[in-house]
Design a protein around this nucleic acid. Sequence first.
RNA 1: GUGGGCGUAGCUCAACGUGGUCAGAGCACCGGACUGUGGCUCCGGGGGUUGGGGGUUCGACUCCCCUCGCCCACCCCA
Length: 419
Amino acid sequence: MIKAVRGFKDILPEEIPYYRFIEEKIKGILENFGFREIRIPVLEHIEVFERSIGNTTDIVEKEMYTLKDKGGEILALRPEATAGIVRSLIENALHLKCPVLKFYFSGPMFRYERPQAGRLRQFHQFNVEVFGIKEASLDAEVVALLYIIFQELGIEKHINLEINHLGCKECRPIYKSLLINFLSSKKEKLCKDCKRRMERNPLRVLDCKNPECKEVTLQAPKICEHLCTECRRYFGETLDYLNILGIPYTINPMIVRGLDYYTGIVFEAISTEIGAQSAVAAGGRYDNLVEDMGGPPIPGIGFAIGEERAVMLLKKEKKVKEEDPRVFFAVLGEEAKRTMIPIVFKLRLKGIKCEMEHDCRKSLKSQMRKADKIKAKYAVITGEEEVKEGFTIVRNMESKEQFKVKIEELVRFFEEVER
RNA sequence: GUGGGCGUAGCUCAACGUGGUCAGAGCACCGGACUGUGGCUCCGGGGGUUGGGGGUUCGACUCCCCUCGCCCACCCCA
């Protein structure tokens, strides 16, 4: 049997309503917030990711799906969306064309990782990005927006909004060396992964899961206590705005984010209910990214929601279901089928969801079983006699009431009844 | 890349520990009881080369080896 590739999952019809609910709900909110949709390609030149996400991150080092096309170019399936959106912003000079630079995007991402609960090789993210504004009020708006999205999805009780500030070009390096000094003094107590992290990305030691490392990092200097006055002011002001907006959050000095491009405010929506991969959404400010990728110095901030992870929470909360058909047409014999099929089409065009049995040799009993199984509200029963006499039997499947309806009046009948 | 768990009908699982009743049940599916009327009930039916390959044995779903796949966790991250 041919099976799907590891880490690539079918989203079957019964699950689709959850994804639609999420995507449609979020789009509705974002449009009101003044965001516009953008769609970017699945493939990019590999530099798009190397120059943005960071050459020493695992994503770029070992998790990208790369390929050489027939012209010898090295391309990569996008492991995340922000880099591509920035590429598009620069390439299309959107900053000169759009008065407001607020974009959203939803689509599949690809990372070659070992699958586990809440982690796939192809997964879906819903991205939100704002460019060109660097104001605490905007940062608060973006963070608040994320919370409101969860609220509107009805899953805000399942997540915790955590926020931190990573500092700027000035204060981050100072903090970093402070941290390295501290960690070096405790080196023996750290796990082997953390010893490695110390060299590559010391900030990441802070979110190690190892209990012993956690004990050590509890004592570590906290970035938010070592911000320069400007960053401190900005962080405080952002939190102020969040308070004004009534958004619940907690400051977590341990969140550092994995991508190199983050600067300033970073935040995560965390859940304890979806396995070890607890981030349902995450984001932050990236003020140098556009410039680093060869564009003008435009600041940015954004976040991504993991759709599969959000669906996991949604499933705990409510059953989103698709619409059942309204009418099932049971047809006994060729004549009945030929008479009813145009009517089925007419009703469908009027927006009434109908289903007809195509095997008209099946017993009425089995056709009624099907009507019941698909949860149709009405069954229309037509046999040879009915066709001859010009009427048909309409049965209300719930009340079991039946009436005769003239065939030429069927469409009008259902228009009335279904209005 | 590393570790642990698991692979028996479409689904959930039993039979494997002491190899030798048949490879079984529930759900789902199809049909009948009701010659043209669903859900409940009763009755019947189709379906499995027990993930694949090799070995031990008179005999393996059951024991051994290899392989593939899935799941969970580490790593990393949405």
